[in-house]
Computed example of a mutant assay.
Amino acid sequence: MPENDETGDTWDYTLYVPNDLRAVTVCRQTLRVILNLHGLTGLADTAELLATELVSNAVRHTKGPAALRVRRSAEGLVWIGAWDTDPEPPEPPVPLEEALEREEGRGLGLVTACAEYWGWHPSARFGDRGKYVWCELGVA
């Protein structure tokens, strides 16, 4: 396996998880394995932090299942998204300085600070309405 995924190959993985906080750890570890397999070890720490924030929000704030989706675009970006069963948009992120002083509600502030881009869009899985909250990291 190459040290860097310079092949420009695209890939796409989805991990469906139950509404259980333990699923956050499963998603984080699965993401690290995916990045290591594709030679993107340098992204693993930041990607794990962002996936943890996105998936934990999906599991904490909804009652249904969730999913982690990770893909590599032809442009070289790694896209990380968390799907949940709540179709409502996420709360706007607070500024990073304020987020760091909070006990809760700092997730999207960290995502905003660490990712190239982030956003959300409505989506459906399992026949339920919901949304994806996502972010992108440059492979560099």
Rank of each mutant, 00 (worst) to 15 (best):
V17M: 03
V17S: 01
P18R: 06
P18H: 01
N19I: 02
D20T: 07
D20C: 08
D20F: 05
L21G: 04
L21K: 11
R22I: 04
A23K: 00
V24W: 01
V26C: 04
C27Q: 03
C27T: 07
C27P: 04
R28E: 06
R28L: 04
Q29V: 13
Q29D: 14
Q29R: 14
T30W: 08
T30E: 09
T30K: 10
T30M: 04
L31P: 01
L31V: 09
R32V: 14
R32S: 13
V33S: 15
I34M: 12
I34R: 10
L35M: 12
L35F: 10
L37N: 15
H38P: 00
G39H: 13
L40A: 15
T41E: 14
L43F: 08
A44I: 12
A44H: 06
D45N: 15
T46Q: 07
T46D: 11
A47Q: 12
E48V: 14
L49Q: 13
L49A: 12
L50Y: 02
L50F: 11
T52Y: 05
E53H: 11
L54W: 00
V55Y: 00
V55H: 00
V55I: 13
S56H: 08
S56L: 03
A58K: 07
V59M: 06
R60D: 05
H61A: 09
T62R: 06
K63T: 14
P65C: 09
P65F: 13
P65W: 07
A66F: 02
A66L: 09
A67M: 06
A67Y: 04
L68I: 07
R71K: 13
R71L: 11
R72A: 09
R72N: 02
S73C: 05
A74C: 03
E75R: 11
G76E: 07
G76M: 02
L77H: 08
L77R: 10
V78W: 03
W79N: 05
I80Q: 02
I80S: 00
G81S: 09
A82W: 00
A82L: 04
W83R: 00
W83M: 03
D84A: 03
T85N: 09
T85G: 10
T85W: 03
T85H: 02
T85P: 00
P87R: 10
E88S: 15
E88V: 13
P89C: 14
P90I: 06
P90S: 13
E91C: 12
P92R: 14
P92D: 10
V94Q: 13
P95V: 05
L96R: 05
E97L: 12
E98R: 08
E98K: 12
A99V: 06
A99I: 06
L100D: 07
E101N: 06
E101I: 07
E103Y: 08
E103F: 11
G105T: 12
R106C: 13
R106D: 14
G107E: 00
G107R: 02
